[in-house]
Simulated assay, not measured.
Amino acid sequence: MSYQYVVLRCVPRPDREEFLNVGVVLHCQSADFLDVRWHVDRDRFRVLDPLLDLDQVCEALTFVEGVCRGDDRGGAAARQSPGQRFGFLKAPRSTVLQPGPVHGGVTDDPARQLERLLEQLVG
């Protein structure tokens, strides 16, 4: 099955264009699959920007979870179809949490592929 994914980046200071990968959103239309996995390494962020509010970053990632899963945490966006929700999440933003470019691949297990991508791209 083909899938698309975006890497979620935390950009503490957009003017410096420095970022750390914090999550992956994967959409597989044929499996009706949309989910996110994320991990925030607080020690790495303290080095990059000691003033960054990491609790706020985690709240934003929890919102992304709600959008992916179609629950109340995702607000109005969560009430759309999975494809529309992925479109919402992959749209460029000028906030601290930003999606990278869309990539794709093929898998027989979208959930397992999401875990692999998290390990490879976020750590």
Score class of each variant (00 low, 15 high):
residue 1 M to H: 08
residue 2 S to Y: 12
residue 4 Q to I: 08
residue 7 V to G: 02
residue 7 V to E: 07
residue 7 V to D: 00
residue 8 L to C: 00
residue 9 R to C: 13
residue 11 V to P: 07
residue 11 V to G: 00
residue 12 P to G: 13
residue 12 P to F: 12
residue 13 R to D: 13
residue 13 R to E: 13
residue 14 P to C: 09
residue 14 P to G: 02
residue 14 P to I: 04
residue 16 R to I: 00
residue 16 R to V: 09
residue 16 R to Q: 15
residue 17 E to C: 10
residue 17 E to W: 04
residue 18 E to F: 11
residue 19 F to C: 12
residue 20 L to G: 03
residue 21 N to R: 13
residue 21 N to E: 13
residue 22 V to W: 07
residue 25 V to R: 07
residue 26 L to H: 08
residue 26 L to N: 06
residue 27 H to V: 04
residue 28 C to P: 05
residue 28 C to H: 10
residue 29 Q to S: 14
residue 30 S to T: 14
residue 31 A to V: 01
residue 31 A to L: 04
residue 32 D to C: 06
residue 32 D to H: 07
residue 32 D to W: 09
residue 34 L to M: 02
residue 35 D to W: 06
residue 36 V to T: 11
residue 36 V to A: 08
residue 37 R to K: 15
residue 38 W to E: 03
residue 39 H to S: 13
residue 39 H to Y: 10
residue 40 V to D: 08
residue 40 V to P: 08
residue 41 D to W: 03
residue 43 D to C: 00
residue 44 R to H: 01
residue 45 F to I: 02
residue 46 R to G: 13
residue 47 V to H: 07
residue 50 P to R: 13
residue 52 L to M: 10
residue 52 L to K: 06
residue 52 L to S: 02
residue 53 D to G: 11
residue 53 D to Q: 12
residue 55 D to E: 15
residue 55 D to F: 11
residue 57 V to W: 05
residue 57 V to P: 02
residue 58 C to I: 14
residue 60 A to E: 15
residue 60 A to K: 08
residue 61 L to F: 07
residue 64 V to I: 01
residue 65 E to S: 02
residue 67 V to C: 08
residue 68 C to E: 02
residue 68 C to P: 09
residue 71 D to V: 05
residue 71 D to L: 06
residue 72 D to Q: 11
residue 73 R to D: 06
residue 73 R to Q: 02
residue 74 G to F: 00
residue 74 G to Y: 10
residue 75 G to H: 14
residue 77 A to Y: 03
residue 78 A to Y: 15
residue 80 Q to R: 12
residue 82 P to Q: 05
residue 83 G to T: 12
residue 84 Q to H: 12
residue 85 R to P: 09
residue 85 R to Y: 03
residue 86 F to W: 00
residue 86 F to Q: 03
residue 87 G to Q: 05
residue 87 G to D: 12
residue 87 G to E: 08
residue 91 A to K: 13
residue 92 P to C: 07
residue 93 R to I: 04
residue 93 R to H: 11
residue 95 T to H: 13
residue 95 T to G: 14
residue 97 L to W: 04
residue 99 P to K: 01
residue 99 P to D: 03
residue 104 G to D: 12
residue 104 G to E: 15
residue 105 G to Y: 07
residue 105 G to V: 00
residue 106 V to Y: 10
residue 109 D to L: 02
residue 112 R to F: 09
residue 113 Q to V: 11
residue 114 L to V: 01
residue 115 E to I: 04
residue 115 E to V: 06
residue 117 L to C: 11
residue 117 L to E: 03
residue 117 L to I: 09
residue 118 L to D: 05
residue 118 L to N: 01
residue 119 E to R: 04
residue 121 L to I: 11
residue 122 V to G: 03
residue 123 G to N: 14
residue 123 G to R: 14
